[in-house]
Amino acid sequence: MAQRSLGRGFGWLWGAYAVSTFGTWLAFDALQVIAVLVLHAGALEVAALAATGPAVGALAAVPLGPWVEFRRKRPVMIGADLLRCVALLSIPAAYGLGLLGLGQLLVVSVLVAAADITFTAASGAFLKGLVPREDLLVANGRFESTMWSATMVGPPLGGAAIGLFGPVVTVAADAVSYLLSALGLRAVGDGEPAPAAPAKA
């Protein structure tokens, strides 16, 4: 049975989601590996890097929720992709200049986590406006299958990439995935309706 087409716009959105999700899981442990192999960080420092970034990123994303609600979602998603791209590219840049430190890894981890949460919040609302209500179950199913595929395949491939090319190059590849995602979102087109105005107190 032929797979149901959800339109060109959804195809670009799905492609953007797929490339960024696989990139994320490809470099899932790369920051911690950089901390150990490049910066010779201890166990407590690595644990702080693994926990602090996502925790602070989640807290930073809380006030962004109402802000995202009353903004066009596609520009927000593109902005989140570009933020993640620039933040991650700062790591190989600093490494090449001999300036990389644990503090930078922590800042990058926080920025990426906050952008992840913001992107996810915006993408759900954007998808609802992109495909008809009766197609949402199929569309969400494709996103879920992509996410689980990336979760299963990404870390082993990421481990191989880190072993072959090193963690810094793997982080750069993750950054490129976000740039490709932003380009895919741009190709979706600008047919998004204006967001609702915030209610006056």
Rank of each mutant, 00 (worst) to 15 (best):
A2I: 01
A2C: 02
R4W: 10
S5V: 01
L6F: 02
G7D: 15
R8Y: 01
F10T: 12
W12S: 10
G15D: 12
A16M: 10
A16I: 13
Y17F: 14
A18T: 14
A18H: 07
V19I: 15
V19T: 08
S20E: 10
T21D: 15
F22K: 03
A27K: 01
F28Q: 13
F28T: 11
D29R: 00
L31P: 04
V33L: 01
V38K: 11
G42V: 03
G42I: 02
L44K: 08
L44V: 05
L44R: 12
V46T: 07
V46K: 02
L49A: 09
A50F: 04
P54D: 06
A55Q: 08
A55W: 05
A55C: 04
G57M: 08
A58C: 10
L59R: 09
L59A: 15
A61K: 07
P63Y: 10
W67H: 02
V68E: 06
V68M: 00
R74M: 03
V76M: 08
V76H: 08
M77L: 08
M77V: 13
I78Y: 03
I78K: 00
A80H: 08
D81L: 04
D81T: 05
L82G: 11
L83S: 12
A87N: 07
A87T: 03
L88W: 10
P92A: 07
A93G: 09
L97I: 04
L99G: 07
L100C: 05
G101I: 12
G103M: 08
Q104I: 03
Q104V: 04
S109P: 09
V110G: 08
V112P: 10
D116A: 05
D116C: 00
D116K: 00
I117G: 01
T118I: 08
F119S: 09
T120M: 12
A122S: 06
K128W: 01
K128C: 09
L130C: 04
R133F: 03
E134D: 13
D135C: 01
D135H: 11
L137S: 13
V138I: 04
N140H: 05
R142C: 05
R142W: 06
F143W: 14
S145L: 05
S145Q: 12
T146F: 13
M147H: 15
S149K: 10
T151Y: 10
M152V: 13
M152C: 10
P156A: 13
L157V: 10
L157H: 05
G159A: 10
G163A: 06
P167I: 01
P167G: 00
V168S: 02
V168M: 03
V169D: 12
V171H: 02
A173E: 05
A173S: 06
A175D: 01
A175H: 02
V176T: 09
V176K: 08
L179G: 15
L180M: 08
L180S: 10
S181E: 11
A182E: 14
A182H: 06
L183G: 03
L183E: 03
L183H: 02
L183P: 01
G184E: 04
G184D: 03
G184N: 04
L185K: 06
G189A: 07
G189E: 06
D190E: 13
G191A: 14
A196G: 14
K200A: 15
